[in-house]
Amino acid sequence: MDSLIHIDRIQVNCTVNDQFDAIALAAKPLLEQGCITEDFVEAAVERERTFPTGLPTTIGVALPHTEAKYVLKESISIVTLKNTIVFAGMGNPKESIPVQIVFLLAINNPEKQLRILQTIITIIQNEKMLKKIKAAKEPQSIYNLIKTFL
């Protein structure tokens, strides 16, 4: 399994107040595991305001991320939300996208991580996969689902 995604970087059925809360929650395990700098969250939130990452897939997905300098160890955190949170649309900040799955990307070498990035894109284009991820009751299920795509 690609080392960027770990069971302890997956949180399911979470409740958050807003998109920025969702980013902070997704960043928590990465911060604890020394994958990102202390100011990653602030930078990712700021970037989300300027260049939003919400995507209107069958179940809305957001892919927050920020500059490479805030990444200590490349990693990806996944959060599924109990409630729906509004993110602005990628390429269209005025668009409101209801999001239930967040992939927080801590990447500093996209060429090297192309395969995992492409896998995430393949998954979010797959309605069945999104439904299964959303319905997952524990991190292990999501980990196993993604593993089948790698």
Partner: peptide, 15 residues
């Protein structure tokens, strides 16, 4: 082009 030229633009460029 994307916000950081880091994640989405890499995938889009390859496609």
């Amino acid at each position: 082009a994307c916000g950081t030229a880091l994640a989405t633009s890499t995938v889009v460029a390859k496609k």
